[in-house]
Amino acid sequence: MKNLRWNNFLFQLVAFLLALAFTSLIMVFAGAPPISAYVEILGGAFGSVNSLANVVVVWMPLLLVTSGLLITFTAGLWNIGIEGQITLGAIFTTAALRLLQESSLPPWLIILLAMLAGVAGGALWAVMAGLLKTFGGVNEIFGGLGLNFVATALTLWLIFGPWKRPGTGSMSGTEPFPDTLWLPQLPGLRLSPWSVIFGAAAIYLVYRLLSGTYFGLRLKAIGKNVRAAFLLGVPAWQHSLLAFALCGFFAGLAGALQVTAVYHRLIPSISSGYGFLGLLVAMLVNYQALWAAPVALFFAALNIGSIQLPIMLNLDSSLSGVLQGMLVLFVLLTEGARKRWLQKNG
């Protein structure tokens, strides 16, 4: 067992080094110094309290989304609709804030209600994908993709239509909320401690849920073989729906954070692509909750650190995207290679 773990780690390490090597190769071809680029990315992510806080601002919603995805992946579900679930969370949060901002309720209560609305929105969208699968026979990948499109269209319509700023027609976004309706931030930083609390709680809860409860065990059973699980008395479709709802819950919370703690309004790309990034993180950690936090941190750090590339080296920051893509590709490749190796030598 221990050997197996070492072996696994070794393969992952090889994947990481290969990804690094290939990204460096691309940089060399582009006439850019790879070592300085990596140093700049690192410094840009961890060089100051401010930049570290910015990394955490990205890390927390990503962690929330990944936590949710670990549940659906465990149940054997490809919840591609996660982007739409984040978006619906943001839409519901914005709607509640708009509805209540003129009311006499205290701001903390308005924020709380708005976030609850966001969570409900995310869960609702996820359950729709689940219902489509369970009762409509629509594979969750296609249902999710469709629902993502609907969520995007809904956002654009709201921003350019009923929620447009007075005298303005722009895809830029809705009118910003007053800072009384922002989640409180740490002094001088963009980071809200609430984000950290939610993110940490989410990954801890999901870890406990999947590794220490009957519910987690049943989800695993469904994930391995839905028919067998059903025959053994696990209420399969109910559990699938619940897995969807829980994932949507976390995605909706991430969307709510994007509105109340980051952008303070609704914008077209409100999900920041964290849904798809979360899918990559979940795949990279092989659906193990324990590794989700550090890997999500790594992705968040890349995201923030790469801002230095244009500032310091006149490089395009999409290079960090290349590194991310390479990483996933090589991890999947080495995972395949490892399985073959195990078959031969195991």
Binding site: S48, S51, R190, V262, S272, I307, I311, S317
Partner: peptide, 24 residues
């Protein structure tokens, strides 16, 4: 400078935040 300062190209960041990077 930082270019492509818009939420579609730089997800998760705001102009004020990027301005702070320049100040740093």
């Amino acid at each position: 400078y930082v270019d492509k300062v818009n939420p579609a190209d730089r997800p998760g960041t705001t102009p004020a935040q990027l301005a702070e990077e320049l100040v740093a």
